[in-house]
Design a protein around this nucleic acid. Structure first.
Length: 802
RNA sequence: GCGCCGGUGGCGGAAUUGGUAGACGCGAGGGACUUAAAAUCCCUUGUCCAAAAGACGUGCGGGUUCGAUUCCCGCCCAGCGCACCA
């Protein structure tokens, strides 16, 4: 009998797959398609660790399962964001790295260079780099041509460690997404001229399409919150004794009669003009103080602060003179940076009014009807909302307005790496796009990658690269020294897998239409940033006719992370990482590791690393292995279908669970089947060859997505000469799902008293009378009377006794 | 503060529409094989009780129901997300 030794088997099949490309999908096949992907970017500086294993394995299991079900299933494997190659790990785990992965993720090679890394694979990436740049720059150029890429000077988040600006989405808890450790500094705000993508133009459609996505509610909600749509109105308030006016945004125009003061953000440009001489000292002091406060401090301050400007505005409906204040609870970046305060109906305004003793007027009663609102009294507040806006519009002092929290996407970075922005700045023509046929703009070779120090990247020092002729006028001009946010690359990379050698477009239409959207996408983070950017870019590519479907990911799973045994995050500094290759090589093999990762917990739960887990799943694979070995040596015996009665229910359970992505219970069903087969072989010693063959084929095929190497080996041992990984998913037959006997539980007043074994098909009346017989039931009934008998067919009888 | 999700043995976790709570695995205990150990195989394993019988048991307190881990109300705790967005 051959012993199970993964270190023997796994290299054999790795080699086979690598050489024969068994898993390379036929991208032009007519079979039904299944496209699964893992997010390439697992957030950790610790290099390849168990978290990557988890990510890769989830999509790979799904892809293998679908392939066994007869789909043309594709699961390309990328590079992780920190540049470590998936290849080594992927081959070890039986995930086949595809040729196409070498054509994605612009800019990382230069990142490695900047970090002083260099090895064979980074050199290999370098040979593909121009192509990486080309398509990212091409997308920028299309955006520019459509007016969706523009330059603006505004306050930006700034990471002092990277010397670069960041987008809103890249600021996490006040820190840079790349530097969010305890010792890292908070981000600051700086006014810098930047390139933006006008994602706000897509805000509405992104929001509207969110509900229809087959994603978890949490992620959908996070996206909706991030987009943050508010419908309301903008209203002009005249300033007393002045020609000026103040425009405010409100979602509650119905409360306009209750607006008893105005509040402006301290940064509001009208503040200086509104401030009276008496108040000037106090206002200047307040503005200076708020300016010094970090954005985070400002957000965390609970107590309301503010000062009076000395000016009064006129409530356009009541004509009342109301004071104009400034306060930092009003944000300059949202709405108009000014609000009308309605203390009676807004908690924040009430707090402010209470503190500074400002008046409040109730304008809506408990029944939601208007009061103290002149001609609108008695109306329902939502009707009043419309009527008041209509009146303001008629008077030319207001209009209905929709506002979003989502800001335009800041895409410039002052880094050496990343795709250069394909723009030439000409003194005469301004920013001019590099013509498509001159793409890509590649990065120059540099020795020193440190930022230029003047707010520009190291590229500002690359004189030869920098100075070029303007494509329009031919005059002297300079290249843009900013590079593109690498999130742009990750917003379209999934498309490139489908058509890696296309030199006309990022992806050919036929391929994209055939495969997109990605059926199943999983990753460990980025509920907002990456997932919003990817949706935006895909919608844009849809609009310009590159892809049919506006959404990139049909199904998205935000899987839990793996933490150290004590619940801490794995980190380089703590040195608590778990190296999957070490576990594999220590003798357990990749199959046991994969199986454990999928078995330990449901995918969306966080999982603590348990070093006893892999030995457990190793044991399971070993038990399956032993069944197959013993079967080969066993002698034929009597016919019996006992084995079918355990295998068919198991197939049904495992299939259903896999369809639902409940891998842990699917594996539990396979383990249970294995235990049942052990019991049966003790009784009939593999007697019925045909039925045992079916059972073991089914078991091995079901185990195959999780333990691909061992399964392939066993599949061949069972006499097959095809691969288990294609068209091998077992079918169950309903006729074996029903047991000969049914087990009926007998309860008395809801308490379990006995269990009956009755032949299948026993009549209801017979079950009910049988339920009265067991000794324990008789005892429990005692002197009582059976008032009612409840029978749930095939399950239980409950006797109601008094 | 608001929103979402959750709280089940020593541990990770199972339980269609309310219907045998604890599947499966780990750990633990016992046994077989072995000179011995490892590996392997078998048995036991929610708590109380010597055992049977029984009682108790899904964060806490109520409720609905023949029957509640599941539904309703009120708490407590933990996690995640958002966090002055007018």
């Amino acid at each position: 009998m051959k012993r199970y030794n993964p270190l023997d088997i796994e290299p054999k099949w790795q080699k086979f797959w690598d050489e024969n490309q068994t898993y390379k999908a036929d991208l032009d096949s007519d079979q039904p398609k299944y496209f699964s992907m893992s997010m390439f970017n697992y957030p950790s500086g610790a290099g390849i660790h168990i978290g990557h294993a988890m990510n890769y394995t989830i999509s790979d299991v799904m892809a293998r399962f679908k392939r066994q079900q007869g789909y043309e299933s594709y699961h390309p494997v990328g590079w992780d964001a920190f540049g470590l190659p998936a290849e080594n790990f992927a081959i070890k785990t039986g995930v086949s790295p595809q040729q196409s992965m070498k054509t994605i993720i612009p800019g990382y090679h230069t990142q490695y260079k900047a970090m002083g890394w260099s090895n064979d694979w980074s050199k290999e990436i370098a040979t593909h780099e121009p192509e990486y740049y080309k398509w990212t720059q091409w997308i920028f150029a299309q955006m520019f041509k459509q007016g969706l890429a523009y330059q603006d000077s505004r306050m930006q988040w700034w990471c002092d460690k990277d010397k670069t600006v960041l987008s809103n989405e890249q600021v996490i808890d006040g820190k840079c997404w790349r530097h969010d450790g305890a010792d890292d500094p908070l981000v600051e705000k700086k006014e810098i001229k930047q390139w933006f993508f006008k994602i706000t133009e897509y805000a509405d459609e992104l929001l509207e399409a969110t509900d229809a996505l087959d994603w978890t509610e949490t992620v959908k909600l996070a996206q909706k919150n991030w987009i943050g749509k508010s419908q309301g109105a903008e209203v002009d308030f005249a300033v007393k004794d002045s020609a000026g006016k103040i425009r405010v945004f409100t979602t509650r125009p119905d409360t306009l009669y209750g607006a008893t003061f105005l509040v402006l953000a301290p940064e509001h440009p009208s503040v200086a003009e509104l401030t009276t001489d008496e108040q000037r000292a106090e206002v200047d002091k307040y503005v200076a103080e708020t300016g010094k406060k970090s954005e985070l401090e400002r957000m965390e301050t609970k107590e309301k602060t503010g000062v009076f400007t000395g000016s009064y505005a006129i409530n356009p409906l009541t004509g009342a003179e109301i004071p104009v204040w400034i306060a930092d609870y009003v944000l300059y970046g949202y709405g108009t940076g000014a609000i009308m305060a309605v203390p009676a109906h807004d908690e924040r305004d009430r707090e402010f009014a209470d503190k500074f003793e400002l008046p409040a007027v109730e304008v809506i009663d408990a029944e939601d009807n208007m009061i103290n609102s002149g001609e609108f009294d008695g109306l329902n507040s939502s009707d009043a909302r419309e009527k008041i806006v209509a009146k303001l519009e008629g008077d030319g002092i207001g209009e209905a307005k929709t506002t979003f929290k989502l800001r335009d996407w800041s895409v410039s970075r002052q880094r050496y790496w990343g795709a250069p922005i394909p723009i030439i700045n000409c003194p005469t023509d301004g920013p001019v796009l590099v013509p498509d046929d001159s793409l890509p703009v590649v990065l120059p070779e540099l020795k020193d990658f440190a930022p230029a120090g003047d707010g520009r990247s190291a590229l500002a020092r690359a004189d030869e690269w920098l100075h070029v002729a303007c494509p329009k006028c031919g005059g002297e001009a300079e290249r843009e020294t900013d590079t593109l946010d690498t999130y742009i690359c990750s917003s379209w990379y999934y498309l490139r897998y489908l058509d890696p050698h296309n030199s006309e477009l990022p992806v050919g239409k036929a391929r994209a239409d055939k495969w997109m959207p990605v059926d199943f996408y999983n990753g460990g983070d980025h509920a907002t940033a990456h997932m919003i950017y990817a949706r935006f870019v895909t919608r844009f590519l849809h609009k310009i006719g590159i892809v049919n479907n506006p959404e990139p990911f049909k199904r998205f799973l935000f899987n839990g992370k793996v933490t150290a045994a004590n619940g801490e995050m794995f980190s380089k500094s703590k040195g608590n990482g778990v190296d999957p290759l070490e576990i594999i090589n220590s003798g357990y093999g990749a199959d046991a590791l994969r199986t454990y990762l999928m078995f330990a917990a449901p995918l969306d739960l966080w999982m603590r690393w348990d070093e006893k887990g892999v030995p457990g799943t190793y044991k399971f694979i070993n038990r399956v292995w032993n069944l197959v070995q013993e079967f080969a040596e066993a002698k034929p015996g009597e016919a019996s279908d006992a084995v079918l009665k355990v295998v068919h229910p198991a197939i049904r359970k495992a299939t259903a669970d896999l369809e639902d992505q409940k891998y842990n219970t699917a594996i539990a069903a396979m383990m249970k089947l294995t235990n049942d087969l052990y019991d049966l072989k003790a009784k009939d010693a593999y007697g019925d060859r045909a039925n045992w063959q079916f059972a073991l084929d089914a078991l091995v095929a079901m185990v195959a997505p999780f333990a691909p190497h061992a399964a392939e080996e066993m599949w061949h041992q069972l006499g097959h000469d095809t691969t288990v990984h294609r068209d091998s998913w077992p079918q169950w037959d309903d006729k074996y799902l029903v047991a000969d006997e049914m087990t009926i539980v007998v309860q008395v007043n809801g308490k379990l008293r006995a269990e009956l074994k009755l032949p299948q098909g026993t009549s209801d009346d017979d079950v009910k009378s049988a339920a009265l017989e067991p000794e324990n039931v008789v005892r429990a009934i005692g002197d009582g009377q059976v008032l009612k008998t409840i029978y749930i067919p095939g399950k239980l009888v409950n006797l109601v006794v008094k």
